[in-house]
Structures are given as structure tokens and as C-alpha cells.
Design a protein around this nucleic acid. Structure first.
Lengths: 199, 199
DNA sequence: CTCCGAGTGCTAGCGCTGCTAGGAACAAGA
DNA sequence: TCTTGTTCCTAGCAGCGCTAGCACTCGGAG
């Protein structure tokens, strides 16, 4: 009994180790630097060990993504609940979203750009992802104006994702990013928004 | 003279051949199937020939992207100029944008997801890209309402890109895509938009 | 205490990738 | 006809994701 469970515990621990090592490596040098060989070296095991835990490299990235969703959800929640009113709630949660993508690009990539395997807009999607989405929905809700909340949230999310992605890919200059975000908020809240709109 | 220029002509022709072969291969089997070996085989030259034309594989993708921008610009222009009024112009150009990404995913990827090397939001960006952007700007213009047109266009473009990207990556279900697009248009035109909004 | 069998993790290697060095073959000018 | 310069191919490097098959370790039975 106990010895069996110890082994399981150690195994689970090693799996966690793989995930955190992959994330660290990705955050330090980008996902293109995360190879199975380097990952194996980092966890001080041989390459094939990875495949006894995960079906392939993609599955490792997916595992990192699932973990990352939780972080994202937490940060979005904090931003939203700290806001005094509905309009600034959307502004703050948006800023938090962008800041997350900016501060943890590797994690953001894992969730939204890298892999495709994990289910998304279905009930089987990771709970943390739903949580993150719900935070966004809660912030969008007051500005729905009768529109379908789910779809409107998806649309707003897509807009944020587009801004983040194009900026990170060098398609949009970082300059005036705040203004673009403010413009987006204006369009979704109907109000001429507050800060960062001076240009 | 003439013999020199003939060689140059042949060389340019072969370069074009490489680009179209890469695009065809990508459209048929996706960019992950475009390897230098397969590309070389397809143009019936050896691998190193590719490197006498382009610095590396990325440069080939970039070349494809530049060509693709022209196509995109043409389609956007056609959609915009065919519209009877400002509101439907934005709707049609948006639909055309999405349709382009949907119908030619490999080309869209080359332009917006794949490579990073080509300059974008700078004067050195390919002229066709500027043309495409200008089409969007012309459609967004009437709804700018005093906002900076360039930045507003960028924001709208980002939103479209987000919708397209998330849907293509499986992050958003294809279902109700039209409704999401309609919601976005509502927010940018201020009007409760026309067709495809029944859900 | 000994031995066996399950299971764990290693070495080695496959077929692929992007990319490059070096030489063969060919064409143009003397 | 010989030389010179270019063109393009063969062969190979280092690294990729992934896997087959063996060596070893270690818990449990006799």
C-alpha cells in the first residue's frame, strides 16, 4: 500500500517537475528552445522518461497551458473585483489581460498559440479556462445591452487577443498601444473612457 | 548584354517558381509540410539552390507573404467599393477579410502568423500591405467619430484578426461566427447592423 | 536469506529538419 | 584550345521528435 502510493507520489512529483521545467525553459528562452533533449537534461532524466508521462511534446505544452489558465483566471479576477464600477472593471480586466500576455509571453503562447490539442469552447475545456472566461464575461456583462453575453464576451476576448498577438508579433508597434486599447473599450462600453486616450 | 540579361531573367523566373511552389505546397498540405527538401524536389532543383535565392526558409515564407498581401488588398478593395453605404462597406470588407483567411489559410498564416522578419507598421512595409490597410482604413473612416483613424483601424483590424485566429485555432467554435462578427460591427458602427444577426 | 519477476529508465538509433562545405560540370572569353 | 568563372549537385553536419530493446533495480514469495 504505502510503498505503492509513495511511487505514485514520486511519479506525480516528477510530472509536475517536467511541467515547471518546460515552463521555465520557455519563459527563459522561448518555446523554440524547449526541445525534449534539453528538457530531459534539465529534469536530470533521460528523454524517454518524458514519453512515459506525456504522449508527446504537444501534450507537455498542453499541460503547461492548463496550469497557466489558472494563473490567468486569478489575475483577471483580481483586476475585475478591484474595480469600483462596471466601466473601469472592463478597462482593468483588459489591462490585466494584456499585462499577462506581456509579462508571461511563453505561458500566453502555450495557452493561445502553441498547441491545438486541448478542447476549448466545450464543456471538457479545463476548468480554469472557463473561470478565466467567466471573469471576462462578468466584466462584459454590464455592457451587453441585450446582446448574447457569451458571444459578446468571445468577441471582446478575440479583440484583446488580436491586439496582443499582433503587437507581440511585431505587426503593431508598441507605441500607442494604450490608445488602441482605450478605443476598443470605448466601442464596447459606449463611454469615451478615461485614461490613456490623449492621442 | 543580352546573354547576361537572359540569365537574370531566368533567375528571376526561378525565384518566382520557388515562391509559387511554396505557396501551393502550403495551401495543399499546410506550412509544416513545406520543407526545403520537398520544395526543392517540387521545383526540380537541389536544396542549396533555394539558398542562393533566399537567406533561409523564413525568407521564402516572407516572400510568399508579400505576394499574398496584394491578393488580400485586391479582395478588400473589391468588397469595399461594391458597398452602397458606409455601414455595409465595413460589414462587407470584414466579411471579405474573414473569407480570405478562411479560403486561403496558408497564405493568411504566411502574412500574419508565420514569420516575423518582414517590417510591418513602418514605411518599409510592403506596399501591398499598406494598400490592404488603407482599404480597411477607408471603410473604418466614416465611423471614426473623431478618433485617430490609423489607430482605430489598427484596433478594428486586430479584432478581426483575433476572431479569425481563435476560430482557426479551434479556440472559438465556427458556430455563431457570423453573430460574433455582427456584434463587432455593431460596436464599431454604432448601428444595430443588418444581416446574420438572428441569434 | 535467496531468488525471481515486474517494472523502471537507460543507451542507441530512426527518419526527419534547416542549412552548408567542397567539388564537378559547364559555359564564356582569350 | 585552354583558362576562368559561374552554376549547381552530392554529401554531410548538428539537431529535432520519438521509440525499440536491453540492463538494472527492487518488492515480494519461498
Amino acid at each position: 500500500m504505502s510503498i505503492q502510493s509513495r511511487k505514485e507520489r514520486e511519479r506525480a512529483q516528477r510530472e509536475k517537475l517536467i511541467i515547471t521545467a518546460a515552463l521555465e525553459l520557455a519563459e527563459a528562452e522561448g518555446w523554440e528552445a524547449v526541445t525534449t533533449r534539453r528538457l530531459a537534461e534539465r529534469i536530470e532524466y533521460s528523454q524517454p522518461v518524458l514519453y512515459s508521462h506525456f504522449k508527446g511534446k504537444d501534450a507537455i505544452v498542453a499541460a503547461v497551458a492548463v496550469e497557466g489558465c489558472a494563473d490567468l483566471a486569478v489575475e483577471l479576477r483580481a483586476a475585475r473585483t478591484a474595480a469600483p464600477d462596471a466601466t473601469s472593471a472592463l478597462a482593468r480586466i483588459s489591462a490585466a489581460y494584456v499585462a499577462f500576455a506581456d509579462r508571461r509571453p511563453a505561458l500566453y503562447d502555450a495557452i493561445f498559440n502553441q498547441t491545438v490539442d486541448l478542447p476549448f469552447a466545450t464543456p471538457e475545456a479545463p476548468a480554469a479556462l472557463h473561470a478565466a472566461f467567466d471573469e471576462l464575461a462578468a466584466a462584459v456583462g454590464p455592457h451587453a445591452n441585450g446582446a448574447d453575453l457569451g458571444l459578446l464576451t468571445e468577441t471582446f476576448w478575440a479583440a484583446l487577443h488580436g491586439l496582443v498577438t499582433l503587437m507581440r508579433g511585431g505587426r503593431l508597434p508598441r507605441e500607442h498601444h494604450d490608445t488602441r486599447l482605450a478605443l476598443l473599450l470605448e466601442r464596447f462600453t459606449g463611454t469615451p473612457a478615461g485614461p490613456g486616450r490623449t492621442l
